[in-house]
């Protein structure tokens, strides 16, 4: 097995009295599509900025492609592609001018980068002369990805590339990432959307500067401790309130069409007991055990939301 593409050891970073990253350690394997999943303010952007040498950690060490992020910054910058979370292209330049600009900054040309970016750029080509600022959200993301790839990097850092992007464009964007990964590129990506975690080889759950776990998506979901019951009722909100008032309820959450419920007790017969409790409240429901999702695990591990 080749050397890891990224190694982070106890990386910590504070901003005044806020601990943005708290003793974060992980590694990314070469060729892996590795995802950081968590809400805004979790530390994802700070971590990415440290890894692409735009920010120094207060303590701990990190390396990218075997190069130290604090000492070897110029060597790293030539080898990484970075797509920041905020739209960072020039809105007044056209699609092709943006690409030319980023290519020239890295001392290369759009033509030389074309083999790498062609699968993405082909979708943008009809709009080559359009101002970048006048593109739709999904197309902006594809242009930003093209600009991050034009110098043929060995590793790609994408900070929330799909935030604010509609569900269809998000899916297409992940299809592009899967294709790039298939061509051997190492990709580190962050997202606030739990449903995107499944598209990664491995995911790190991140919240308030701490890693809540790093594993393959299926293993993260399986690591949920206890059993999740799905409560199916046409009166979802009333059922939620009734279960909040149930003495055996551990947690109950809205989950898409239905509710996810965990009980303080262990053992058989719990589902029937929940059905009976709801019935005494005049609510008809089906209650069945289901396999937990990554979002269930995240909620379980994140603890109480931050106080105001």
């Amino acid at each position: 097995m080749s050397a890891p593409a990224v190694v982070a050891e106890s990386v910590t970073r504070r901003f005044a009295d806020v601990v943005a990253l708290d003793d974060v350690s992980f590694d990314v394997r070469a060729g892996e599509l590795f995802g950081f999943v968590g809400p805004d303010g979790g530390g994802k952007t700070t971590l990415f900025r440290i890894l692409v040498t735009l920010l120094l950690a207060d303590s701990g060490r990190a390396s990218v492609l075997g190069l130290d992020v604090a000492r070897d910054l110029w060597a790293i910058r030539r080898k990484v592609g970075y797509m920041p979370g905020r739209f960072s292209l020039y809105p007044d330049l056209s699609v092709e001018e943006n690409l030319q600009f980023f290519a020239s900054v890295f001392g290369t040309t759009v033509e030389a980068g074309m083999p790498t970016i062609a699968p993405i750029y082909d979708q943008l080509a009809p709009f080559a002369t359009r101002r970048a600022g006048a593109l739709s959200g999904g197309m902006k993301q594809k242009l930003a990805l093209s600009c991050a790839l034009v110098h043929h990097p060995e590793i790609l850092f994408l900070d929330e590339p799909t935030t604010g992007v509609d569900a269809v464009s998000r899916r297409e964007f992940w299809d592009l990432l899967a294709d790039l990964r298939g061509r051997g590129l190492t990709i580190v990506v962050s997202t606030p959307y739990m449903d995107e975690a499944g598209r990664c080889d491995r995911v790190a759950l991140i919240q308030r500067g701490r890693l809540l776990g790093v594993d393959e998506p299926a293993a993260v979901a399986r690591s949920f401790s206890g059993a999740v019951l799905e409560v199916r009722s046409r009166e979802r909100y009333r059922a939620l309130l009734a279960l909040r008032a149930f003495e055996h309820t551990d947690t109950v959450h809205l989950f898409g069409e239905w509710l996810h419920y965990t009980d303080r007790r262990a053992g058989n017969g719990i589902a029937a007991d929940v059905v009976a409790h709801l019935r005494t409240n005049g609510i008809v429901a089906d209650v069945t055990p289901i396999a937990p999702t990554i979002e269930d695990t995240f909620i379980q591990r994140m603890g109480a939301p931050e106080a105001a």
Binding site: P39, G42, P192, Q207, H253, F298
Partner: peptide
């Protein structure tokens, strides 16, 4: 208009309540 973008999964649910 997109009231819950980027919000953690528990707070997102509190918002819906």
């Amino acid at each position: 208009d997109e009231p819950t973008g980027g919000v953690d999964p528990v707070t997102r649910r509190q918002f819906w309540e």
